[in-house]
Design a protein around this nucleic acid. Structure first.
Length: 316
DNA sequence: AATAGAATCAACCGCCAGGGA
DNA sequence: CTCCCTGGCGGTTGATTCTAT
């Protein structure tokens, strides 16, 4: 059975947060339907198209890709809900949009992340952080999100992707979650429990990395999608490049020493004459945000404080 | 060679903002 | 002003692939 025939059934989640439940219940009441009816409506929207035909889910086949590419090349993007119908695809508009934006777009760059890209991701993530998300995860909170989150709060991954032409937010997010985050958190923990300037720290981290199969040098890199591999690659296996190896060592270096900000670190790199993110127009005035300024999970107090009094670290 | 566990990443989910009716 | 629809976001899932034993 080919992977794209593996049609999964959508989950109908009933575990909403208090805020979500309020909103949902309010809307359900407004529309005069009971919650079961609402869930059934959602289910049908997810599973069926306007002709009541079941929507296909899971991995895209090459044929589907070709249909979507051909249609968009010919007619452009005008309405994601209508495009799958017009293109003869049994997919939701959302699914088509996701496939196009993250995968089929002609300007998408594939392959290894360069040193500059890793720097950018690290720096912007430190700047923007997971503040938008961290506050959601505070289970003790039962506040309306819109009361806390400012309208112009940056969208983390898309903001980073905007600085990395050809990279998608999804790709960056996956890269962060699979490669950078682990090292970031690991080293944050090391920082908390070990004395600074411990000469063995770096070595210990590296040993542990290998033990736990964390990427150290020959980190597995995002590769071309399975479906397109045969068409796009030259057939040669992709090995981690020396370029990226040095990038990843840089990542570790950037993270490990808690006594320096990332800006300071990258500033040192500039001395080596390498073109880096900091050469690009980007205001870093007064933005010396250390990890410890917020900690790994910024608190509500910090966030509110920032909103009330402004914070140099928000400038994007 | 077989197996288990870890890693990867495309695709999905739930939700929200904004614009138009 | 309200409602509805669409696009877009971040977090999560799970099938597949890789690696170690």
């Amino acid at each position: 059975m080919s992977p794209w025939n593996n049609i999964r059934h959508p989950k109908i989640s009933t575990s909403y947060s208090p805020f979500c439940r309020r909103v949902r219940d309010q809307r359900v009441l407004q529309r005069g339907i009971d919650s079961q009816g609402k869930l059934e409506m959602m289910r049908r929207i997810q599973q069926y198209n306007s002709h009541n035909l079941p929507l296909k889910r899971g991995a895209w086949s090459p044929e589907e890709d070709q249909k979507l590419i051909a249609y968009i090349n010919r007619h452009g993007i005008w309405n994601w809900i209508e495009i799958p119908k017009a293109a003869g695809l049994l997919r939701s508009g959302k699914s088509c949009r996701l496939r196009w934006m993250n995968y089929l777009r002609p300007d998408i760059k594939r392959g290894n992340f360069s040193m500059e890209e890793v720097e950018t991701i690290l720096m912007l993530h430190q700047k923007i952080g997971n503040r938008r998300c961290a506050i959601f995860k505070d289970k003790a909170l039962d506040l309306k999100r819109t009361e806390i989150i400012p309208v112009d709060a940056p969208a983390i991954w898309s903001a980073i992707a905007a600085k990395l032409p050809g990279r998608t937010d999804n790709e960056i997010k996956n890269f962060w979650n699979t490669n950078l985050k682990k090292n970031y958190l690991k080293n944050s923990i090391n920082i908390a429990v070990q004395a600074p300037d411990n000469p063995q720290e770096t070595q210990t981290s590296k040993v542990e990395s290998k033990k736990r199969k964390l990427p150290e040098i020959d980190v597995p890199l995002p590769t071309a999608p399975k479906i397109l591999k045969s068409e796009e690659s030259d057939g040669s296996p992709k090995l981690p490049t020396a370029n990226f190896s040095s990038s990843f060592n840089l990542v570790n270096d950037l993270i490990i020493n808690e006594n320096q900000t990332i800006e300071d670190k990258v500033g040192l790199l500039e001395l080596t004459g390498e073109q880096c993110f900091w050469c690009q127009p980007f205001s870093t005035e007064g933005q010396k945000c250390k990890v410890e300024d917020y900690g790994d999970t910024p608190t509500v107090e910090m966030w509110v404080q920032e909103l009330l009094h402004g914070d140099a670290c928000t400038g994007l």
